[in-house]
Design a protein around this nucleic acid. Structure first.
Length: 465
RNA sequence: GGCCACGUGGCGGAGUGGUUACGCGCCGGUCUGCAAAACCGUUUACUCGGGUUCGAGUCCCGACGUGGCCUCCA
């Protein structure tokens, strides 16, 4: 069985053939670290983590390299730093913001069960590579200097007749359309309104580095060239998979392709371009003004990370998701059941019924249906191994259960005392008293479960509603 | 205005021409002092209008609806 992936560029599912099966290479655009990551940011993290795990399963852990960058130079970071640390010099404030936010991001994605990528490059550590790419683009006639900016010219790219991709091929639009649809003010230093910034001058006090292309004033990079530089440094001029959210297709990824292909005279940057769909919250677009803007951090206060993970994977990665409380409750219930039935089970091999849907462009919905199938067939070993492949079952069943008790703050010994009192009442057939105790516990959110142990003796356990 | 994606049963959500998706819920049963939990079983669908075909949720055209992108938002 072979892996098939949907490629945004060719707009079809294609069999995945790595450039080098001993060194499978994937790049995913990571966060700009200026604020808490929201639940929409969690989607690419989880989706491409599943792909990373699947690739490791197929090609071996040592043969897959996953790069996810951290953008730590950006206007939004500068604004946030000035707002939060008005007393500090800007550069120091920026460092505080990026450190704090980066740390929080790692705590969030760890809780979601996402493996750390092989490399997490920071933009500010790759300024040299960015300058190098910019120099090549200027030398090749694809970029020009104007008023201390360096601008990339898609027109020049499409005028070149050598083996380059056409600008606009990834996002499926022509330069003419872009010119016609342009609705922003064109900066006076641009030759064409489709030109985009590779390098720009820094204002006094802002982060700055020596500029390329003979510009005397110091400056800083444009966003797009950061990813071209980091991907090049860690994965080479041409690699296998490039991922991110659909919103990045244009202009970010289109521009990455342009920069990398023109700098290195290549026809392709990545062989497969993968994009995850967007997310709505309770059927509404997530926005701060509606008040439904929800961070990963906030959700983790109420739900285990694996519940968020399962809830995300119930929907195919390219479809839109409506993120709702009801759906989260369902996901939590499912995981409770899976933890229960896989408790103390030695994991076997991941089931083919789970792996095969994943090979078909990460059909996680169908894979989850297969998990239910394993559960109903009482194949606990296969279920446990398959869940692990998908990044679940990171803790023991006991830890999973105790986490819920801790969160609710109930006193386990008090509950045990009440259960014993109820058992005594039932023995003397004082059902009025036994029901009273049961209701008392329900009021505390504790649900009793009467069963029998292996000897047929009645035994009562409990769980939180 | 331009480009693109999507529209499945009470809810979530798979399925690219012909057989039960699956899960949650509902309902019924077993168990129970009664419940709950657990286990067993059952139920309902393909936005609308045309077309292609022996046959369409699945292909084509149109309408309506929802969402995304159109210069730094995952």
């Amino acid at each position: 069985m072979e892996l098939r992936l949907y490629d945004t560029l060719s707009r079809e599912k294609r069999t995945f053939v790595p450039l080098d099966a001993k060194d499978v290479r994937m790049y995913v655009c990571g966060p700009t670290v200026y604020d808490f990551a929201h639940i929409g940011n969690a989607r690419p993290v989880i989706v491409f983590d599943v792909l990373f795990r699947l690739l490791r399963h197929l090609y071996g852990e040592a043969h897959v390299k996953y790069v996810r960058n951290i953008t730590d130079v950006d206007d939004k970071i500068n604004d946030r730093a000035a707002r939060d640390f008005p007393g500090l010099p800007l550069n120091e404030a920026i460092r505080k913001v990026t450190e704090q936010t980066g740390k929080q991001f790692h705590a969030d994605v760890d809780a979601l069960g996402a493996l750390r990528p092989s490399v997490e490059p920071r933009a500010t550590e790759h300024i040299g590579e960015m300058r190098e790419i910019i120099e090549k683009l200027v030398a090749g006639g694809f970029a020009y200097v104007a008023e201390d900016h360096v601008l990339f010219s898609p027109q020049a790219m499409n005028a070149a007749d050598s083996g380059l991709p056409r600008y606009g091929a990834l996002s499926n639009r022509s330069l003419d359309e872009m010119i016609a649809g342009a609705r922003v003010d064109v900066a006076p230093y641009k030759k064409d309104n489709t030109d985009f910034v590779l390098w720009k001058p820094s204002k006094p006090g802002e982060p700055s580095w020596p500029s390329p292309a003979g510009i005397r004033a110091e400056g800083r990079p444009g966003w797009h060239v950061e990813c071209s530089a980091m991907a090049w440094k860690h994965l080479g001029e041409h690699f296998d998979i490039h991922g991110g959210g659909v919103d990045l297709v244009f202009p970010h990824h289109e521009n990455e392709v342009a920069q990398t292909c023109c700098a290195f005279h290549r026809e392709r940057m990545a062989n497969y371009w993968m994009h995850n769909g967007f997310l709505q919250v309770e059927s509404e677009k997530m926005s701060k003004s509606i008040g439904n803007f929800v961070t990963i951090h906030e959700l983790l206060a109420d739900w285990p990370g694996e519940v968020l993970r399962l809830n995300m994977l119930k929907t195919h990665y390219r479809s839109p998701i409506d993120w709702t409380m009801k759906s989260l409750e369902e996901s939590a219930k499912t995981l409770d059941d899976w933890y229960r039935v896989t408790a103390d089970v030695a994991p076997g091999q991941p089931a083919a019924s789970v792996v095969e849907p994943l090979l078909d462009d990460l059909n996680t919905s169908l894979a989850i249906a297969a998990l239910h199938g394993l559960r109903n067939a009482s194949d606990a070993g296969g279920l446990a191994a398959s869940l692990r492949l998908l990044g679940f079952l990171s803790e023991s069943a006991a830890q999973w259960e105790s986490r819920k008790q801790r969160a609710s703050g109930v006193d386990a010994s008090e509950i045990d005392r009440l259960i014993a009192a109820r058992a005594a009442a039932r023995v003397r057939k004082d059902f009025k008293e036994s029901d009273r105790i049961r209701d008392e516990l329900v009021a505390k959110g504790v649900v009793l479960k009467d069963g029998k142990d292996t000897d047929g003796k009645p035994v009562t356990t409990w769980e939180l509603a």
